[in-house]
């Protein structure tokens, strides 16, 4: 392997792991590679059992998740957080579908390399889906 390729791989590894360590500790990140924490009041919707990025399902009872009954519904938390910060319009905009090819990649680098937008949506999906 040439030196530049090795450097690139090591560099990527450092960025990926730095992001991972920070986000796993703070947000229980699953490294979807298309981070929308900015739009969701820093509550990660990928922790929802259905990985809903466009709002709650019809399941929450008494504000609790229908799958993990001892946990608050992620979208109830996102709604409350965004209402508190006056950012409800961010919750109302439809997010483009997930790009599963970005799974397990570094979202920060994906922003730099223009694979995703600042709002955390895959540019390819947006183009394909005309969002």
């Amino acid at each position: 392997m040439s030196m530049s390729l090795l450097l690139r791989d090591v560099g990527y590894g450092i960025c990926y792991n730095a992001e991972r360590i920070a986000k796993v500790v703070l947000f229980r990140c699953s490294m979807c590679g298309q981070c929308i924490l900015r739009s969701t009041g820093f509550v990660c919707p990928m922790r929802c059992p259905k990985q809903m990025r466009n709002g709650p399902c019809g399941g929450p009872t008494g504000g609790m998740c229908e799958v993990y009954r001892d946990r608050k519904c992620i979208w109830v938390r996102i709604y409350k957080r965004n209402r508190f910060f006056g950012q409800l319009p961010k919750t109302e905009r439809r997010m483009t579908p997930l790009d599963w090819e970005l799974w397990e990649s570094a979202a920060w680098l994906n922003v730099v390399t223009k694979k995703i937008t600042l709002s955390g949506e895959s540019r390819r999906t947006k183009e394909e889906f005309q969002d």
Binding site: G55, C57, G58, T61, V76, R83, R94
Partner: peptide, 21 residues
């Protein structure tokens, strides 16, 4: 589908609007 009976109540109508859009 629409569920008027699940939390967050205040937002259910906005969520339906998203589906209509």
């Amino acid at each position: 589908g629409a569920n008027p009976f699940a939390e967050p109540f205040e937002w259910r109508v906005r969520h339906l609007a998203k589906k209509i859009d």
